[in-house]
Structures are given as C-alpha cells and as structure tokens.
Simulated scan of single mutants.
Amino acid sequence: MIRRATAPALLCVLAALAMLSGCGIRATSVPVDAGAAPSRVGCVLPNDHKGPDGGDTASVIRVYLVCGSRVSPVEREVRMPGGRSSAERLPVARKLLDELKQQPRAVEDTAGFETAVPRELTINSGTDDDPDEALRLSEPLDELPPYALAQIVCTYADTSAADAEGGVVLGGPPETDSGKKPQVRRYECGPALRTHPQSAESAGTHL
C-alpha cells in the first residue's frame, strides 16, 4: 500500500521539477520592474529651457563649462563692455572670466555643468614685449587646473579676446620669484582640447 501511494507522488514531484527547470530558472529577456533607473547627467540643457534672446542692452555669449570629462558650451545673456561688437580685448576678457568664475546657474547645475576656474583668478594685458594679442593671468599657467585653462581658452576663442585666427595667447604673471618673465603660449580650442581638457597642460605653443 505504501509503495503504491509513493510512486504517483514521486512522479508528481519529478514532473514539477522538470517544469521548473524548463521555464522558471533561466534568465528572462522580459524587463523586470525594479523601480526607477538611476538618472544620468546628460550635459544638455532641458528642451523646455528658455534660451537667451539677446535684448538691446545684452549680448548672447557662449561660455564653456566642465561637464563630465569634457568642456561644453552654454549660452548666457550678458551685458558686455562696449556692446556685443566690442573689440576691446581686455574688458571683454575680464567680463568673460567673471562669468567663468561664477557658480553655474540652477538649470546648468541640474544638467551637470560646473566650473574649475578659481574665484581669485584675474587677467591683465600683456607686457610691452609680449605679442599684441597676449593676456596675462594672475596665476602661472602650469599651476592652473587644466580644466580651467581649457574653459578659458574655449570661451575666449570666438571673441575679441582671441587673435585674428581664433587663437588665444595667454601667459602667467610677468613677475616671478626667479625674476624671469614666463613666456606666453598660444592655444586653440579644437576637438582634442574640448574632449580631453587635461591636455591643456601641454597644448599651448610657446611664442
């Protein structure tokens, strides 16, 4: 009697195991709802963001900020010295540097943008024996964060702070502890600098 009752039960157990091995154990390609996926920074301002339109007293400028491992442009509406067509190199360079030193605006911050430009950084004209297009920063170029240098170069590149070919000529402070004036370097904002800002350390050409 016991043997007769056990055999059908054993068959049922084996059949159940076969069904499990055939349809319940393998990984499935059907998505499983495990909650919301983590958000990813896109380095792109939202579509509903109202871009600047440039009023009569303001200019729409392009400022390069750090996002992820690159520097990328955002547009801002800024009152520029001398107006939107100003050819005054130093006032334009100073205004753009002020923009770079500011903390990103709320919508920029949400999209993942930030700045590496030090708050205390200033800029002045070159010395008498520098090229006409030269600008000198208050920090030695080699001591600036490379991302900050890339931001400055790319922001200046298509403005009157650049030379006629869009190059940016920069140097550090003209006076150093050694008494030797550092050379200025010419930079270009190409794809390599935008996508690999750390290359700014060695990107400039000595003049």
Rank of each mutant, 00 (worst) to 15 (best):
C154Q: 09
I61C: 08
G55L: 08
G24T: 02
V78N: 01
R105C: 02
R40E: 13
G204A: 11
Q103S: 10
A16Q: 13
T205R: 15
V168H: 03
C154Y: 10
I61F: 03
K181P: 04
A192L: 15
V169L: 12
D177A: 15
R185G: 06
D48N: 13
C189M: 10
A161H: 06
E75M: 14
T176C: 06
R136F: 05
G68S: 10
P73F: 00
T57D: 15
A93T: 02
R26D: 02
R4P: 00
L149A: 06
D109F: 01
L170M: 06
E108Y: 08
A157W: 09
P197R: 09
P46R: 12
V32H: 11
D130P: 05
L96T: 01
V13D: 06
G167F: 02
Y156P: 02
V63F: 04
L65T: 04
T195P: 03
S125G: 11
A162L: 04
T195D: 14
D109E: 04
K50N: 09
C23Q: 09
T155P: 07
A93N: 02
P81A: 05
H196G: 11
Q198T: 12
M19I: 08
P182R: 13
S125C: 01
E133Q: 05
C67K: 06
C23F: 10
E201F: 08
Q198W: 14
P191C: 11
T176Y: 05
P191H: 14
Y187N: 03
E108P: 04
A93G: 03
A58P: 02
Q151G: 02
I61N: 05
Y187W: 10
N124I: 01
S160T: 13
R194C: 00
V92M: 15
V107K: 00
L14R: 03
S202F: 13
G51W: 10
P46I: 05
R40G: 02
D132F: 05
V66A: 12
P118I: 06
S199G: 03
G22T: 06
R136P: 00
G171S: 04
G83F: 02
A157Y: 11
A27E: 13
A5V: 13
P118T: 00
R76E: 12
R40K: 14
Q103Y: 11
K101L: 06
V78Y: 03
V32W: 07
S39K: 15
E75G: 01
A161M: 08
S69F: 09
A162V: 01
M1G: 12
L141M: 10
L11P: 07
V44A: 13
G112V: 13
A162M: 11
M19N: 06
L11F: 14
A162Q: 07
A9R: 13
G54P: 04
I2M: 10
K50W: 10
R3A: 14
A37M: 14
R70F: 04
V78K: 01
V168P: 01
V41H: 01
L121C: 01
R4N: 09
S202V: 12
R94K: 11
H49Y: 14
V60Q: 09
G126W: 04
E75T: 12
K95C: 07
A106I: 10
Y156N: 05
G35N: 03
A111S: 12
L121K: 00
T155M: 01
T28W: 12
S86W: 00
P140F: 08
E165P: 00
K181Y: 00
R26G: 07
A111F: 11
T176M: 14
